[in-house]
Design a protein around this nucleic acid. Structure first.
Lengths: 71, 71
DNA sequence: TTCTCTATATTTAGGAC
DNA sequence: GGTCCTAAATATAGAGA
């Protein structure tokens, strides 16, 4: 976004995509954490990507299971 | 954040909290959507809050199930 | 409540090391 | 690969209707 706008489509260049992924993953979990803390919300999230060996879970396995079971 | 910084703690006033929740829920799903589209990532998320009757699922039930099963 | 507005906090693309 | 930087895009607190 800064320096240049980015169109909402797959980033073709693989190393650019990985760099973007790492930044956005961090931002995403930060937003999740704030939403959870500031407001009174339970949040569970899983991201599965080529850039992590294992799926990444927010905030942790147990809370995620408990939250997912609800829907 | 704009107008004023906000400290990372539960927003005490309930109507302020609800207003903030609604804005942040929207932003959160938008970030999830961009991360999924720009980078090559599967994302599943569930939010359970006092402000929605049902837990809200991203991006939809089937994808969420498939993603959650992986971890 | 639920919308709009907008000033300001936050995120991030593109670099340089 | 991972820092750190910084300009510019984006998200949002607070206000007002």
């Amino acid at each position: 976004m800064p320096r240049n706008k980015v169109k909402l489509a797959l980033i073709e260049n693989e190393s650019d995509r990985k760099v973007s992924y790492k930044k956005r993953e961090k931002g995403f979990f930060k937003k999740a954490h704030k939403l959870r803390t500031l407001c009174d919300a339970e949040i569970a999230a899983v991201i599965d990507s080529p850039y992590n060996n294992e799926p990444t879970v927010f905030p942790n396995y147990d809370v995620a299971i408990n939250t997912f079971v609800k829907f």
